[in-house]
């Protein structure tokens, strides 16, 4: 529903701006041009998206997720104290975080929901649940493959040169989100 409003607003705004600025012919030309650009973009990234989707699935089957889970154990227990006593919860949390790090969006959400159900008590969100959701709204992805596919399709020869910037930015964002959640959890009692 939100996207319906946004789409209508975008089209309305361009109509209004074109009328005021007299850009009518450019606006008319932009309609088929934009639609064609959508198909071009989709086609040019499809190969990479499919390949990386395959690699992602293979990483999961080859045990990369399990190995990463072991590394994350201390951090997970620190952020979610409940995980110390609940091994099912712990594995769901680790699975969710690992899938996010490896960029396996399809696998991350079901495991995240499973963890959330175990943390869930009543109709109010508890502190650990809030932290889990904040963590999932921040990006932990190590290698943003779809983004790299777009950059390559637009003629970039070094699609991964932004990785240091992405990692630095992502870590800061996660750190701020979690710190804010910890602090607000102290102040904002149920």
């Amino acid at each position: 529903m939100v996207m319906s409003w946004i789409f209508t607003a975008l089209v309305g705004a361009s109509l209004l701006a074109a009328l005021t600025l007299g850009n009518g012919s450019a606006l008319a030309a932009a309609v088929p041009e934009g639609a064609a650009a959508g198909v071009t973009l989709a086609l040019s990234i499809a190969g990479s998206v499919c390949l990386w989707s395959g690699v992602g699935k293979l990483m999961e089957k080859a045990g990369f997720t399990k190995a990463l889970s072991r590394l994350l154990h201390p951090a997970v227990c620190f952020i979610f104290p409940e995980a110390k006593e609940d091994s099912v919860l712990e594995s769901a949390l680790c699975g969710n975080i690992c899938a996010n790090i490896l960029g396996l969006g399809n696998a991350a959400t079901p495991m995240g929901i499973r963890a959330a159900r175990r943390l869930h008590k009543n109709d109010t969100a508890g502190d650990s649940l809030c932290r889990l959701i904040v963590l999932n709204t921040a990006s932990l992805q190590l290698i943003p493959t779809n983004l790299a596919a777009i950059r390559v399709s637009l003629g970039c020869s070094t699609p991964f040169d932004i990785l240091p910037a992405v990692w630095l930015t992502g870590s800061c964002s996660v750190a701020v989100g979690l710190t804010a959640a910890f602090l607000l959890g102290r102040l904002w009692k149920t």
Partner: peptide
């Protein structure tokens, strides 16, 4: 793909209109 088509149409329109 459908999202890319729709949104690129809207954004290209927005760009061309001067908005």
């Amino acid at each position: 793909t459908p999202t890319l088509i729709l949104l690129l149409t809207a954004v290209t329109m927005l760009r061309a209109s001067g908005a």
